[in-house]
Amino acid sequence: MSLQDKYSALTDAATAAGITDLAVREQDGILYIDGTAADGATKDHLWEVYNQIDPNFTSGDLVLNVNVAIDAAVTHAKVVTESSNLNIRKGPGTDQPIVGKAAHGEIITLVNRSNDLWWLVRTNDGEEGYCYAQYLEAQA
């Protein structure tokens, strides 16, 4: 069975969910699916489908890179850590010193999102620095 067949339920779900810039390519025995989802729920749904086809993601034959689209006008984000505070760092990297913290669930101001992985933010207390973007959910 080809990889495209194995993951056809996933690519079908991506098409049905209206993923934009959807690209499905196979290279050296690995399937790469890239695209942009309208919201986080759509992205999570695709991961659920992926988990059903390949329980616990043990096959190592798919890289699913679906990002969530963010309107350029968005100025605030919610801290979506599991439960802990989110570190705010001087620069983009965990090797950078911590300059502040944002509480779980707190809404903070987005200053710059030019780095995909690390967003420059400002807390309500005026602390400014970089947070790991995966723990921030843009507020519409």
Partner: peptide, 17 residues
């Protein structure tokens, strides 16, 4: 899923879990 989502965004060739 959270870990896999974070890692998949980094453009790896493969994730050997």
């Amino acid at each position: 899923i959270t870990l896999m989502q974070h890692l998949s965004a980094l453009k790896p060739k493969k994730i050997d879990n």
